[in-house]
């Protein structure tokens, strides 16, 4: 479980995150949604320590993450897996070398044990026949799957996904969403997904936070999101004209 308590962040004069609090549950896919510029990625980067926070607390189970020093954060991050927007696979390494990298770095496993784990992760993301390809030789969806395999290779307790569907067609997006959900349930991870894709919300949104202008505007799940009266959330959910016509809430 991850608890976010009253966190704020400013870049110069511009307040990007304003007193946001929420709880992210273990074994569930927690989605943070919002328009571009609403502060979603900033929150994610604060949660993993890539951005500092101005005030508040980020608590991983019993550990107050933002109070750890750099070395402690570095050690703590071994429990974190992250799927970056562009995949962030290392260009100079093949798919299997990418996945093996954290294992080689932080475990004393034998080569065989490491590559057994690599193959297991590749099977999980259904990419087992692409071991020796370089990232440049992969399609967008394959890159995301390879990056997901790398993120879970060290068996993390927490998985962060920054817009996992960006740049993917709707069909591949569904595959990636289902994969993330399956892995979350199977490994009982606390998964946080930053997205503005409503398909993802309706498919795997077990716990959904809506950010608006740096503030938490709404919290619920995929069942309640369509029946909300929150004006800004409805604007976001029914952004497309053809969807507006299907909205049962005539106040929109």
């Amino acid at each position: 479980m991850i608890e976010i308590k009253h966190i704020s962040k400013s870049f110069g004069e511009h307040k990007v995150i304003d007193d946001v609090s929420f709880t992210l549950q273990a074994g569930k896919t927690n989605l943070v949604i919002g328009e571009s510029g609403s502060g979603k990625t900033t929150i994610l980067k604060m949660m993993v320590g890539l951005h500092t926070i101005d005030s508040g607390q980020i608590i991983y189970d019993q550990t107050i993450f933002n109070e750890l020093n750099e070395k402690q954060k570095q050690d703590f991050r071994k429990d974190i897996g992250m799927l970056f927007q562009g995949g962030a696979l290392f260009d100079s390494m093949t798919v299997e070398e990418n996945i093996a990298f954290p294992l080689k770095m932080f475990t004393n496993h034998t080569e065989k044990e490491i590559y057994d784990r690599v193959n297991f992760c590749l099977e999980k993301v259904r990419l087992h026949d692409r071991n020796n390809l370089y990232p440049a030789e992969l399609s967008g969806g394959m890159k995301k799957r390879a990056a997901l395999a790398r993120a879970i290779s060290s068996n993390p307790k927490y998985l962060f996904c920054d817009e996992p569907n960006s740049g993917l067609d709707p069909k591949t997006s569904i595959v990636i969403d289902e994969l993330i959900h399956e892995l979350t349930v199977e490994f009982n991870m606390t998964t946080v997904i930053i997205t503005h894709d409503m398909n993802s919300v309706m498919q795997i949104g077990e716990n959904v936070m809506f950010l608006y202008q740096g503030k938490k505007w709404w919290e619920g799940d995929k069942q309640t999101i369509l029946s909300t009266n929150n004006r800004e959330l409805l604007d976001f959910v029914y952004a497309a004209d053809f969807l507006k016509k299907t909205n049962p809430n005539k106040n929109l």
């Binding site: 993993v48 890539l50 570095q74 991050r77 992250m82 970056f84 962030a88 290392f90 954290p102 962060f160």
Partner: peptide, 8 residues
Amino acid sequence: DALEIMGV
């Protein structure tokens, strides 16, 4: 960033 997240 990916290296940092891995704890490297």
